[in-house]
């Protein structure tokens, strides 16, 4: 029913949509790095994203894809992983509480450990607890497509080999969570994509969006 679908203690309106209360926003603010005002601003963004293709209270994968890549079509390795890591309840959609929790990791003030852990989950494509050479290769191939580059297989293998060797402290041919933690702690710039500077300023970024939308 509605309540199993709806997070927190939100109210269901006549259209079977979640109406978040001030208390919901306060709880989410309490659980994350955001203030209540920032959670409210994120709700504006969430409403836009969750109604872009299907007008409900959840972000479907196609809606996330549309927002990130301006097209709902095609297959994207990263999109699949980002979506899965955001979808904590694993019910195939991103709900507002999941959205706020996941974005909190990308806050400039979020602890480094959270960012390290989140990145590991993303790159552990098959969720085996290790980042394996095959997974690194899949990610490199996906990025080469993005840059419209083609590398011969031996060069590709060399990049994969170097990547594993750089981080694989215990020499078992794959990157464990501990390997990863030690490696990115030495090379924090590798986590640059785990921080969204916008989140420090979310209320003004999104109020300018609301203003532009209303102006249209």
């Amino acid at each position: 029913g509605c309540f199993s679908y709806c997070p927190c203690i939100s109210i269901i309106d006549q259209n079977h949509k979640c109406t978040y209360t001030a208390k919901d926003f306060a709880i989410l603010a309490d659980e994350t790095r955001f203030t209540v005002e920032e959670v409210e601003a994120l709700h504006v963004l969430f409403k836009r994203l969750s109604s872009s293709l299907i007008d409900d209270d959840s972000i479907h994968k196609e809606e996330l894809q549309l927002a990130l890549f301006q097209t709902p079509y095609g297959k994207n390795l990263f999109l699949d992983r980002v979506f899965d890591v955001f979808d904590q309840k694993r019910n195939g959609v991103i709900e507002f509480d999941e959205f706020v929790h996941a974005l909190s990791v990308f806050h400039p003030y979020a602890p480094m450990d959270e960012k390290i852990d989140f990145a590991f989950k993303l790159y552990d494509l098959r969720q085996t607890g290790f980042i394996e050479p095959e997974e690194v290769k899949l990610m490199v191939v996906a990025i080469l497509i993005e840059f419209d580059m083609n590398l011969p297989d031996d060069l590709l293998e060399a990049i994969v080999h170097k990547t594993i060797a750089d981080a694989d402290k215990d020499n078992d041919g794959k990157i464990s969570r501990e390997d990863w933690k030690a490696f990115v702690s030495r090379n924090p710039s590798l986590l640059i994509n785990m921080t969204l500077p916008y989140l420090k300023d979310i209320t003004s970024v999104l109020s300018s969006f609301v203003f532009k939308t209303e102006a249209k």
């Binding site: 990130l68 990025i143 590398l151 990049i159 170097k162 981080a167 990115v184 640059i192 994509n193 969204l196």
Partner: peptide, 25 residues
């Protein structure tokens, strides 16, 4: 020299792996 490159450097700078677009409009 791409061989001297660590794949995670590429990934961290990749556009397809950047959530900033969520805030673009």
């Amino acid at each position: 020299k791409p061989v001297s490159m660590n794949a995670f450097e590429l990934i961290s700078r990749s556009q397809s792996f950047n959530l900033e677009n969520l805030f673009e409009k």
